[in-house]
Every structure is written in C-alpha cells, then in structure tokens.
Design a binder for these strands. Sequence first.
DNA 1: AATATAATTTAGTTTAAACTAAACTATATG
DNA 2: CATATAGTTTAGTTTAAACTAAATTATATT
Lengths: 116, 116
Amino acid sequence: MEPAVLDALASPRRREILRLVWTGEQTAGAIHRAMPDVTFGAVSLQLRSLVEAGLVEARTERRNRFYRARPEALGPVAEILERMWDDALWKLKLAAELEETRRGPKPRRRRKKRKQ
Amino acid sequence: MEPAVLDALASPRRREILRLVWTGEQTAGAIHRAMPDVTFGAVSLQLRSLVEAGLVEARTERRNRFYRARPEALGPVAEILERMWDDALWKLKLAAELEETRRGPKPRRRRKKRKQ
DNA sequence: AATATAATTTAGTTTAAACTAAACTATATG
DNA sequence: CATATAGTTTAGTTTAAACTAAATTATATT
C-alpha cells in the first residue's frame, strides 16, 4: 500500500465519498447531491484526490462521469472501512465529525461546538 | 479502529516516530536525536498527538519519558505498516516524503524540488 | 542553592488543505 | 444556434497542521 493511500483516508470527507462509491458506481452529480453542504466544485476536487491516490476510478459516459471505488488499492484496510461503515455507532461519529471538521469561508449553517 | 487512527497515520513524521518506537520503547530525547531536522518541541507535540490517538503510550522514569507503540490500536493496519517498513524501496520513499513535506518557517537546509 | 539535563508547553509563524465563486469545457436538446 | 445540463478548473480565502523559539516544569548533580 502506498503512503498516499493513508493520506487520502485521513479526510472524513474523502472517506464519505469513498463509502458512497463503494458498492457501486455513482455520478459526480449523485455524489454531490448526497453532500449538499459543499459545492459541486469541492466534491470534484476531492474526487480528483481520490483518483490520484488510486482509491477511486472514473469513466465517462455521455455527459456523465461515473466514479467507483478500487478496494484492491486498500488491501486489508478495505475490510476495516467496511466494518466501520456497518457499525451504526460509527455512522453517528462520522456525522459529528463532518460537522466538526467543516472548513473554508462562510459556513452556511449555525456552527455548533467547534472541536473543543 | 477509530477514525482518529487514520488521521494520525496521515503524517509521515508521525509514521516515522511510530516506526522508531515500534520494536521497543524510546525516550523522547532518543526519538528527537533520530530526527535532528526538527526541534525537540516539535517531536514532543507529535508524540502527544500519537498518544491522544492511542497509537503510542508513555511512562516516566526519573528524568526520562519512555514512549512505545500500541500495535493493538492499529489492528490489521499494524501488519501493513510493518510490511512498509521492511520494504527497502519504501524506506527511500519515506525519506523523500519527509524532505518534501517539511513545514514551518526557516527551512535550515537547501530546499530541493518543492512537491512538483 | 545553583546548575544541568530531559521534556513539555505556549505563543506566534508558515504552509497546505478544504473550501467557495466564478469561469470554463463538453455534450445534449429545443 | 442558443440554452441547459454535467462536470472540471482556476483564483483566491479560511482554517488547521507542523513547525520554531522561548518559557516553563521537573528531576538530578555539584
């Protein structure tokens, strides 16, 4: 496994995208619709990072671009992630984490507790 | 495994420290001596991060503080890291990576290529 | 008590990551 | 051709991470 993989997995946002394309391919638009708190551009950039790290691959069909995970790039880490995603408690943690780690200018919603 | 573990593993510096305390405990000073391009303070802060992530634990003996890895916190990732460290090619990659990802003010040495 | 050694903590700086808004490319449709 | 749709890219902003230098804590030694 490449160190770049560990870098890519460090971001909750990228882990969330990876989860979305894990079981089947999704268009960039569908992925964006699943995370309406960020712009389409932001999603596109994170998709690029994931592709560069080798965790995700893409194909173009007509106007759409379909992304899907490459679990083989993760080796044994794939199973760890699957276990995380199956764990309901972990889902709540991820939601909290996405809230906490929001970045960039002009947070649209009320900010809650700001990571301690 | 906690997501915090993935965050901690994202930093080449922390991975290097983890490697140093993997097979046996080391004092903070010994760890610092192994990475003379950063200050003692910087090493101490990264050690704190690793302890907070649960990847490393510490004990105090007289004036010294001994750190050691907690491989059980990594689960199957432990083996992946060990494989990385055993791989001579990967060692070269790490060296390059540490060079590339240097941060903070006043880089003491000539900077080489600055990440592409 | 003074000094040395080992390490942590604090305050401030630099850099890179994550983001936004807007410009852009490409494909489809009336 | 004009307009809509799908997506990427660029330029610039904000935040957090990684760092430094200096202050601080704690323990040992003379």
